[in-house]
């Protein structure tokens, strides 16, 4: 059993805050998957659903902002409680960005022409799977307050970066060989970029989880 806080009201606030982060993270994770589905299948309805759902993520971020301000103002948390609240505030901002990237991917799905013959489209789902897996794992690390799991997520980012490099090269050579597909391929470049940024944000969230759990900042990574 997790030890409950002595001040019950504070404990309830923290639990609610964590619940909101969890809900927001779940929405962002699903948004990535559905945006990629919309992109690959060319489903406009699915893309619209992702775009509409992003509003809920934004609303949740606002709720979290208000709740953290209220907690700090009313309960004046100290030490690990303060870290938890600050980390949650920052994590909410990052998850909101992840949701935006997913929305961005969904918006671009309309710009791909002649999907069936467009071979570079098959490269991206695997990259999206790693990126959304990172978001899933980092949220689990947040839920478990597990610094080690957060470190494992950070190590994963190299994979996404490597994927981005290879997708980039692949798309550029595809554009040179098939100039007629340049506009579609350019859209995919932006999608790959968004996925890469999602990986970076997962890393940043992992750093905050690490900070909240241990009180230490992870040093800036060289390749950040």
């Amino acid at each position: 059993m997790v030890a409950e806080h002595t001040v019950k009201a504070f404990d309830e606030d923290i639990t609610r805050l964590r619940g909101l982060i969890g809900e927001m993270g779940g929405l962002a994770e699903v948004a990535i998957g559905e945006a990629m589905d919309a992109l690959v299948k060319g489903s406009d309805a699915l893309a619209q659903a992702v775009i509409a759902r992003d509003k809920r993520i934004d609303a949740l971020e606002q709720d979290i902002d208000q709740l953290t301000v209220r907690i700090i103002a009313l309960r004046a948390p100290m030490a690990d409680d303060l870290r938890e609240v600050i980390a949650s505030l920052k994590i909410a901002g990052m998850v909101e960005r992840v949701g935006d990237y997913a929305k961005n991917i969904a918006k671009r799905s309309g710009g791909i022409k002649e999907r069936a013959q467009f071979e570079p489209l098959t490269l991206l789902p695997a990259m999206a799977e790693i990126a959304s897996g990172m978001i899933h794992d980092v949220l689990t690390a947040y839920a478990a307050r597990d610094a080690q799991a957060a470190m494992a997520v950070i190590e994963c980012d190299a994979k996404v970066d490597a994927f981005y490099d290879s997708v980039f090269r692949n798309l550029v050579s595809h554009m040179m060989e098939n100039p007629s597909t340049i506009s579609s391929a350019a859209e995919l470049l932006f999608v790959a970029r968004s996925l890469e940024r999602i990986g970076d944000h997962a890393t940043n969230i992992a750093e905050m989880v690490y900070f909240a759990a241990t009180g230490e900042y992870l040093g800036d990574r060289k390749d950040a």
Binding site: V2, R18, G19, G22, G26, E29, L139, A143, R145
Partner: peptide, 17 residues
Amino acid sequence: LGAHVTGQDARVALRHP
């Protein structure tokens, strides 16, 4: 779901929209 679920908000443990 992980050993941490007990004592947590159910939304943190499940998360799926």
